[in-house]
């Protein structure tokens, strides 16, 4: 009998509440010029960061973010039981090569831009189940590596439509521990893959919004909670129009979240930075969570937040073959407890 299940999609942690005991974020130059700059641990001077390729630069961000998290918690790689992580590149090479350097037992995950909360979901289960004392959950993305894999070469003179999103250059993550100081992960709601038939790869927010709305609705139904139980509801990278659509879809289900709902993709850049609809990428929700949101919780601005990173699970092949874009969102509830 699974005692810790609530409803169809949610689990709650009871035994060893996983705590976020350390966090770190590294971002690119453009992110470092945005409104959240002061919250990030490290800002790169340029996209290459002295490496030979963008892929190597992304890998190094991943490694250094992991080292920073461990350093802040005064831990060595040998103290960490598991590393859960992923990125956007084919065969998740950033995470895998970083794990090669770090030497921590590694589960590589691909949930597109939902990978941050996917990692935390699984890491939290490990800690609560008594299988681990310290789990590192980390994701990264890089504008240049994503752009060349999913779209056009950078130097190609193309126009971006108003719904296009800008992939965040950044790596961020948290350390989940069975003891210590920090906010707890209390619930995990695992998302279903939802596809409402959006085909435009330049409108990812619209493709992912139904998944975000479905997971948030499932979370409320399973836990008996409502929007008013949270100080803040956060989605990963729906951007301006995806956020509007999510508000709309949830209103139809009877939940009004608008007044306490932010999207990481809308927060990290300012309007003047010419990024169109907003930001995206695995790194987006990772650095906003690790940099901004957890700091705000530390400072007492928020006591309980619901965070759902959102991912678009298509590839260039599926898009070329005319398939629509399926979305996914995994939600985690984070709460300050004494």
């Amino acid at each position: 009998m699974a005692q810790n299940r609530l409803g169809g999609q949610t689990i709650s942690f009871i035994q060893n509440l996983p705590r976020i005991t350390s966090r770190a974020s590294i971002v690119g130059k453009k992110e470092g010029e945005g409104p959240l700059a002061q919250y990030f641990d490290k800002i790169l001077e340029d996209d290459l960061w002295g490496e030979k390729s963008w892929e190597k630069a992304e890998r190094r961000m991943f490694i250094e973010a992991a080292q920073l998290i461990m350093k802040k918690a005064k831990k060595e790689p040998a103290d960490i039981n598991y590393l859960f992580g992923g990125d956007l590149l084919d065969q998740i090479i950033s995470a895998a090569y970083a794990a090669r350097s770090l030497g921590i037992p590694f589960y590589g995950l691909y949930g597109a831009c939902s990978t941050m909360t996917e990692s935390i979901s699984l890491g939290a289960v490990m800690v609560d189940g008594g299988y681990a004392d310290h789990v590192l959950c980390l994701t990264s993305s890089h504008f240049c590596t994503a752009e060349r894999q999913f779209r056009f070469p950078l130097e190609m003179g193309t126009q971006r439509p108003p719904t296009a999103q800008w992939t965040v250059t950044g790596a961020g993550g948290v350390l989940l521990s069975s003891s210590g100081e920090g906010p707890c992960i209390t619930h995990v709601t695992t998302g279903k893959v939802i596809d409402f038939g959006i085909k435009d790869a330049n409108n990812m927010g619209a493709a992912m919004a139904p998944a975000a709305a479905d997971t948030i609705r499932a979370h409320f139904e399973d836990t008996g909670r409502g929007p008013e139980d949270y100080d803040l509801i956060v989605t990963g990278d729906l951007a301006k129009y995806g956020r509007e659509l999510t508000i709309h879809l949830l209103k139809k289900e009877g939940y009004d979240i608008e007044s306490r709902f932010i999207d990481c993709g809308c927060e990290i850049f300012s309007e003047e930075q010419d990024i169109h609809a907003g930001a995206s990428g695995c790194g987006c929700s990772a650095v906003v969570l690790a940099g901004y949101l957890l700091k705000q919780m530390e400072d007492g601005q928020f006591n309980r937040i619901l965070m759902a990173s959102t991912g678009a699970l298509h590839s260039t092949v599926s898009s070329q073959q005319g398939d629509s874009i399926p979305g996914i969102a995994h939600a985690i509830a984070i709460e300050k407890k004494g």
Binding site: P161, T163, Y241, E244
Partner: peptide, 17 residues
């Protein structure tokens, strides 16, 4: 029908070039 309704909604919210 739900998908169609949603696609129309998404189109109306998303700005055109």
């Amino acid at each position: 029908k739900i998908h169609k309704e949603y696609q129309d909604l998404a189109n109306s919210i998303s700005p055109k070039s």
